[in-house]
């Protein structure tokens, strides 16, 4: 058994004096897909942002507890945030390409980190990333076009290409398919599946079907608590917790 990639212990998150996450303990397996599900506002995105410290720019956000990335606490003083975010990439719910050319979008990460020695190498990185994101065929002869001129699904895959161009170890995806049609979603699913051989992926999704399709483990959040975490098959056929059951079967919330 390979050691987990990420381990959160006693993680509490506060926005001002409102607590958004309560004592989260979870280990996220290496080179596997972990899906986070739960009702709106339960703290999935907040948890995801804890994993690459995207909560830092929010001034009122405060994190307690530890998150270990390969045994190194990402909230320790010695952790360099820029370095961390290069290792833990993120794809957002709403596609957010830069208003620049498709090429520049993908090249931005390698450029700021200096990941190439020659221009030729940069071109190769961009091409490889776009291919891995399944977008290459659609854009290969219009790389100088604005990234924002692509369709929603293409934009999302462009954002994925941009994220993997930095060659991160972990990819966090916050509802990457919430605005995509089934075909584009299937492409992203396939991509996630393919990426999961080399990357550790954490995906937030509102589509239980998607969580079931792509993930190896599922965590169910409710009101800031990680209610249940387990193997995907178990969660979707026989969850242990009544709230998880109610959520995945679409029942009214039970007060107990």
């Amino acid at each position: 058994m390979t050691p987990p990639k990420l381990i959160a212990t006693h993680l509490n998150l506060f926005y001002g004096n409102r607590q958004a996450l309560f004592d989260i303990n979870v280990s996220i397996a290496r080179n596997q897909v972990t899906a986070l599900i739960g009702p709106s506002g339960c703290g999935k995105s907040s948890f995801l942002k804890c994993l690459n410290r995207m909560n830092d720019p929010i001034s009122e956000a405060r994190v307690e507890g530890t998150i270990l990335l390969d045994k190194e606490n990402i909230y320790s003083r010695s952790m360099d945030v820029v370095q961390l975010r290069a290792r833990v990439g993120m794809v957002f719910q709403k596609p957010n390409p830069f208003p620049k050319s498709i090429f520049d979008n993908v090249a931005y990460g390698p450029r700021i980190h200096g990941l190439f020695r020659s221009n030729q190498e940069l071109v190769e990185i961009v091409e490889k990333s776009l291919k891995r994101a399944g977008l290459w065929e659609e854009v290969k002869d219009r790389l100088d076009q604005q990234g924002t001129s692509l369709s929603g699904g293409q934009q999302q895959r462009l954002c994925i290409a941009r994220a993997i161009a930095v060659n991160p170890e972990v990819i966090l995806m916050d509802e990457p398919c919430s605005a995509l049609d089934p075909i584009a979603t299937a492409k992203v699913d396939e991509l996630i599946d393919e990426l999961s051989h080399r990357y550790t992926i954490v995906i937030v999704t509102h589509s239980l079907q998607q969580a079931a399709r792509v993930s190896h483990s599922v965590g169910y959040f409710n009101k800031g608590y990680l209610v249940e975490f387990g193997e995907t098959g178990d969660i979707f056929t026989n969850p242990k917790n009544a709230r998880t059951l109610d959520y995945i079967t679409g029942r009214t919330y039970r007060r107990t």
């Binding site: 720019p57 820029v82 993120m90 941009r162």
Partner: peptide, 11 residues
């Protein structure tokens, strides 16, 4: 979202 995109890439 653009700032977040750049930040998340490690800018």
């Amino acid at each position: 979202s653009l700032r977040h995109a750049a930040l998340a890439l490690g800018a």
